[in-house]
Design a protein around this nucleic acid. Structure first.
Lengths: 348, 348
DNA sequence: TTGTATGCGTTATCAC
DNA sequence: GTGATAACGCATACAA
């Protein structure tokens, strides 16, 4: 069955304008404008007349006209790679919640890879008329991107970046400290052969988590067997692959620490394929506290990273920067070690 | 550390305009406009001069001005409830991918509940200047919403709706047939006591899946024990709760069919808590083929519902409708029974 | 406290 | 093929 609609009404033509409202309310367009912009110096009675007329005409200010005359788009862009849906949705929800009741709108820019975006962000931002950018990891760590935006004095904020702070604001947690805590937890349980599953080597968060892992081992004077370092890509599938390699090795580790939950869940699946009991024969730890860590069995010990809150605060900082208000250059949010059922004392 | 930037450059003021490009290229603004809108009747040499000037000035057309004069916003809205992040991201990616290379942009509207949106969608659409709406389930099933939008001749498309087809286009699968297939699969494995875990009773998809389940039982002349009907809310947690109730009952079912994967994963967790072997002692089936079905152990037998593809096609239909081209009123996409490890023959 | 005139950056009309 | 000029709907000096 096929249709062709003759007359659709999604466009703005034919809709009531400020002039119509002025006419019907017996005022001028300036007064209507005042009412709709919450400006002072409008007599309550006049305001009411305007509002009534607007309601009657189903008037809504035309955003395009408003943007044009103000020289602003009220658009901000969220740039992210697509590692796990859970993470992405947390990010979006945080940003959207902060934007609620602001007149800004959020545009999504899922990126294939941070690398091929390098040096192109400013052009995209200009083309879409964005007023500011939120850069989720690992985009905020690309030197060329940061340089380009900074040079152009284009407002942006980075979420959980790991490179040295720049003139641009950032919101994140201390990845090194968090990974250190998790490693200490495993060490405290008696584990000595601990495998580390890296995430995407291009995400500096991975570097930081690995650094924290190494630091904790060094504290206890444990020489890390580099054979126990495996690499994934932050995806569930890559975690499965890494797990299979790890458990196929001659001397199995007693614990595996994966740089995020998706990979940890993959390692868990690999363990089960091999008939290994978790945490009886091997402990598994993740990072992020994404939904997946609570969905698998046993539930994963992980680091609670407040993604939603980071996105929310980052958005707030960006708005402040766009509005030329004072803003916090660097915000560090608290993380939390979440001990659940996937880690247990090492058996001798 | 606090900053206040004196001069940010995210706004549009100060950027090159069509006039600048015309001046630099020695042409008129109309010609520049022609070039940027791919209109014919521009000599190649002139075109090149314009393009060069534009590049030199880093000119990008001002979307607001363009929208204003055309009387269009090039904005479409995606309205969804937030059941599972996996589903939401599939939806977004499908829509975004279709929009790629179109000049439309997507605005996100996560809704708390379909009920409290009833009758408010048109206002929101008008206020945001949207040209069209994509309604993900269960929003497309709200009678008041559909009525309101239809009345106003506002372009919208529904994804996987289950209420009777209306004048508005829809893209979906045959939920009844899919649920029937899944139930037959369980029956073929010898299961006779099969519990059904409902989703949100307000989502008509739930009604359809339950209907398919019942039809399959009726085909085999099996009288369904209504005690085996439990209810969740399409969330993982509600699946856990339902599973606990089901497995606590005096006579346990040998199979559980949940109306979506998130709940099936919850049932699986409840089974494990109780020490039940899956699929040895109980088979569990889901619906959706969302990431979660592949992440849990054993992986879930489920129905593959092409969410991404549905969103992509729905977006295409909406664009056609907005552009007043011919569009398909109803699109039914194929589903697929995915037999994985969570279902096995019933033991006698 | 309210109104008038001007311009924002485009596209569209119509002449050349 | 190309170019003046008038909208588009709104905010904002400036005037009253």
């Amino acid at each position: 069955m096929q249709f062709t609609d003759v007359e659709e009404r999604g466009r703005t033509r034919g809709r009531a304008t400020i002039t119509d409202v002025a006419a019907l309310s017996g005022t001028s367009i300036k007064t209507v404008s005042r009412v709709f912009n919450d400006e002072p110096f409008v007599r309550p009675a006049t305001r009411k007349r305007v509002l009534d007329a607007a309601a009657q005409l189903d008037y809504h200010p035309n955003m395009a006209a408003r943007s044009l005359v103000r020289g602003r788009s009220f658009l901000i862009g969220l740039f992210y790679e697509n590692p796990s849906p859970n993470y992405v949705v947390d990010l979006q929800t945080g940003a959207l919640d902060r934007l609620h009741d602001e007149r800004f709108q959020l545009l999504l820019f899922p990126c294939e890879s941070a690398a091929n975006m390098s040096g192109r962000l400013l052009g995209i931002a200009r083309a879409s008329g964005l007023e500011g950018l939120i850069l989720a990891p690992p985009l905020g760590d690309d030197a060329a991107t940061v340089e380009e935006l900074t040079q152009a004095r284009f407002p942006f904020v980075r979420i959980a970046p790991t490179t040295a702070p720049t003139a641009s604001p950032a919101v994140g947690i201390d990845d090194i400290a968090a990974a250190r805590e998790m490693t200490r937890h495993l060490l405290d349980l008696g584990h000595r052969r601990i495998a580390f599953v890296q995430g995407d080597p291009n995400h500096p968060s991975n570097t930081q988590r690995l650094a924290g892992f190494r630091e904790a081992l060094a504290e206890r004077r444990i020489v890390h067997d580099e054979a126990l370092l495996d690499g994934g890509l932050y995806t569930f599938e890559s975690g499965v692959a890494a797990g299979r390699r790890i458990f196929a090795a001659a001397t199995r580790p007693t614990a595996v620490f994966a740089a995020n939950d998706d990979m940890a869940a993959g390692v868990l699946l690999a363990a089960k394929e091999r008939g290994l009991d978790v945490p009886g024969q091997v402990s598994i730890a993740g990072f992020d506290d994404s939904l997946i860590s609570r969905v698998v069995w046993p539930q994963l010990t992980t680091i609670c990273q407040p993604t939603y809150e980071m996105a929310k605060q980052a958005t707030g900082v960006l708005l402040a920067r766009i509005e030329r208000r004072e803003f916090t250059a660097e915000t560090r949010l608290a993380h939390r070690l979440l001990i659940r059922a996937s880690t247990a004392p090492a058996r001798n």
